[in-house]
Nucleic acid binder design. Structure first.
Lengths: 224, 224
DNA sequence: GTAAAGTGACATCATTCATTGTCACTTTGG
DNA sequence: CCAAAGTGACAATGAATGATGTCACTTTAC
């Protein structure tokens, strides 16, 4: 794509004069990174409001204040943009939740409270991102399905790890634990989705409390 | 759409000769119904394999063995077809689950077992339908979002009703109960989705057991 | 038998959109 | 200063597809 074949001369050392010079005092790398950033932001905004389907590359570029050329500089098509947005957003979310938990390690109730608060508050504060990761990602193409599956797995495995930390004495039962974690993640996601689709009516605390109730219930049952 | 303005004569009694005659011994109503049925089946097959997006009306008609004309006879566009498929499938599923439960009323564990078995077996037996109701429906348009919300509400309310039947003495707490039920439905759906995306690897019984564990956990916690 | 209704295959039209290309203008580096 | 690189606005191209229309053929009702 960004090859510089140097047709006539057999590729001597490319002078500093060549491609990749600075512009308006900004290096090529920085300019590219800024444009990419703008596109990611614009993509989140549009995918999270208009929706992925029915959003054209033109529209994303207009929102980003860039022209199509720069879209294709960073992404090969809108699927790639969506995929990248999904990856970044979910990893941000994972980090938020991890950190929230890290501060309360050992106290199941406090951990759940902190993790869930971090989760639901993120969605409330970033409604466009929320919509992208919960709705727009679905059914785009098989690669995206796989990506979704992988992210869900990550969250489920994370939860399994936390539960095992709380019940170190308990014998591991991989399939069962994994299925349970998947279910619990689904519970959180579905509560979040309904909360979102209803316009975030209930206070965060209420949603957190109900979600916590489910986590605690299962944790208690596991302790029997 | 199917108006017969009868341009010249001011709409006298339409003779039996008029529109709507039988063809190959089949009445107009029956022919229409059969075509509609074919389209619903074809739509499920294609939406559930290729996906809703990226499926054209032409493709649906080819699968149904009909021409476009007959598509528009029954549906105004593919969104309408998807909506109808979703409605029919979820109501079938609701009925299956209701019946499964009805036979075991009063026994929480048996009820959960029966309901969940009915649910997961339906998905296993109808993978195309499964994909349509769990994946393809998402993010199509705002009306479909509302429909999804409504169906999820129905299932959640159903679950609330069951729980209240099991705990008649308990004071109702609408928002809380509703949130809990939404979470639990989400747990079942997410387990189903992962099960599906992984190609229905685990035996139904394992999935049912894990799902039941979550339901029972919450039920027990509620009993405290 | 025959005119109208029904059917099937396919054409047509208009639109949308991804992707690439053009051109005038600005900035850079020497 | 000036040639090359960078930029922005926008045109051009081609493909897909929703929706409607055409036409030859079959079936029906009388």
């Amino acid at each position: 794509m960004t090859q510089t074949p140097s047709a006539s001369k057999p590729a001597a050392k490319p002078k500093a004069t060549a491609r990749g010079r600075a512009y308006r005092g900004v290096s090529i790398e920085k300019r590219r990174a800024e444009r990419r950033e703008k596109l990611l932001r614009a993509g989140t905004t549009i995918f999270g409001s208009v929706g992925f389907h029915g959003t054209s590359v033109r529209a994303i570029c207009a929102e980003a204040g860039l022209t199509e050329r720069y879209f294709y500089e960073s992404f090969s098509n809108s699927d790639a943009l969506l995929s990248e947005i999904y990856e970044l957003t979910t990893s941000q979310l994972r980090q938020l939740v991890s950190r929230a938990i890290a501060y309360r390690s050992g106290e199941p109730d406090a951990m759940a409270e902190a993790a869930l608060t971090a989760y639901f508050e993120f969605l409330l504060d970033n409604p466009h991102s929320a919509r992208v990761i919960m709705v727009e990602i679905m059914g785009v193409n098989p690669q995206m399905d796989a990506q979704y599956r992988r992210v869900m797995d990550d969250f489920a495995n994370f939860l399994v790890a936390v539960f095992r930390g709380l019940h170190p004495e308990r014998r591991h039962h991989d399939t069962r634990d994994y299925l349970l974690a998947t279910g619990l993640i689904g519970a959180m996601v579905n509560m979040a989705m309904r909360w979102m689709l209803n316009g975030y009516r209930e206070p965060v605390a209420d949603v957190v409390q109900a979600a916590r109730f489910i986590l605690i219930s299962v944790n208690n049952q596991l302790s029997q």
